[in-house]
Simulated assay, not measured.
Amino acid sequence: MTKSEPQQGKPPSRLIDERIQELADWRGEMLGRLRALVKEADPDVIEEWKWRGVPVWSHGGLICTGETYKNVVKMTFAKGASLDDPAGLFNSSLEGNTRRAIDFREGDEVDEAALKALIRAAVALNNSKASKARNI
């Protein structure tokens, strides 16, 4: 079993597919759309399934999660406080020193270009921290 493969024996990508299908409402549609944007922004992204059912996207470290709640789909960026957000996408978890999140509600528009830029910035931050660690 690999680190990102859960005990259920299914690959994380399959578990995420199943989550999207089981939601069968706007949240599943939104999670699927956000997932597609993550993959477009970073074709080398690694999908994981953590914390008893949370889709996670990583590349050189955790990029973001895709949590689903009754009224929102929350995209939490692990190092969001360190990212520039010129489009003002972050609208949740603003009080902390590390994470930042975007809450998407039913009917919300997604600024795809800005979100992909944020994802790419998170990957670049992960890669810069990884390269600094290698140079120490």
Score class of each variant (00 low, 15 high):
Arg14Leu: 13
Ser93Ile: 04
Lys74His: 12
Trp57Asp: 04
Leu115Arg: 05
Gly28Trp: 11
Ala122His: 00
Pro11Tyr: 05
Asn135Ile: 10
Arg100Met: 00
Pro6Phe: 08
Arg35Asn: 01
Ala78Ser: 00
Arg33Cys: 06
Leu62Ser: 12
Ala114Gly: 06
Glu40Ser: 11
Glu5Arg: 11
Arg52Lys: 15
Ser93Trp: 03
Phe77Thr: 02
Asn127Thr: 04
Ile136Tyr: 10
Glu109Ile: 01
Val72Met: 09
Pro86Trp: 00
Glu29Arg: 06
Glu22Gly: 08
Ala117Pro: 04
Asp17Lys: 00
Arg19Val: 06
Gly32Asp: 03
Phe90Asn: 08
Leu89Asp: 07
Lys3Cys: 05
Thr98Gly: 00
Ile46Glu: 15
Met30Thr: 14
Leu37Tyr: 04
Gly96Asn: 09
Leu37Ala: 03
Pro12Glu: 11
Lys74Glu: 12
Gly32Pro: 08
Trp51Asp: 15
Asp85Trp: 00
Ala124Thr: 04
Arg33Leu: 09
Gly66Tyr: 07
Gln8Pro: 03
Glu5Leu: 10
Met30Cys: 08
Thr76Tyr: 02
Val72Phe: 13
Phe104Ile: 11
Asn126Asp: 06
Ala41Asp: 09
Gly88Trp: 12
Asp103Trp: 00
Thr65Ser: 15
Ile16Arg: 11
Leu89Tyr: 01
Gln8Cys: 01
Ser128Arg: 06
Gly107Phe: 11
Trp49Gly: 14
Thr76Gln: 03
Arg100Cys: 02
Leu31Gln: 06
Glu67Thr: 06
Asp111Trp: 11
Pro55Gly: 09
Arg105Phe: 14
Met75Lys: 05
Glu40Gly: 06
Leu94Pro: 07
Ser4Gln: 12
Arg134Lys: 13
Lys74Arg: 14
Ile102His: 02
Ala81His: 07
Pro43Leu: 15
Ile119Asn: 02
Glu106Asp: 13
Trp26Thr: 06
Ala87Gln: 02
Trp57Thr: 08
Gly60Pro: 13
Trp57His: 12
Thr65Val: 01
Asp108Arg: 04
Asp84Glu: 01
Cys64His: 00
Ser128Ile: 02
Thr68Pro: 10
Thr2Trp: 05
Leu125Trp: 02
Val110Arg: 12
Trp51Ile: 14
Tyr69Asn: 09
Ser92Tyr: 06
Gly9Val: 08
Arg14Glu: 11
Gly88Arg: 10
Pro12Asp: 10
Ala130Trp: 07
Asn127Gly: 03
Gly32Thr: 07
Phe77Tyr: 14
Arg27Cys: 02
Ala113Ser: 12
Tyr69Leu: 14
Glu95Leu: 10
Leu15Gln: 01
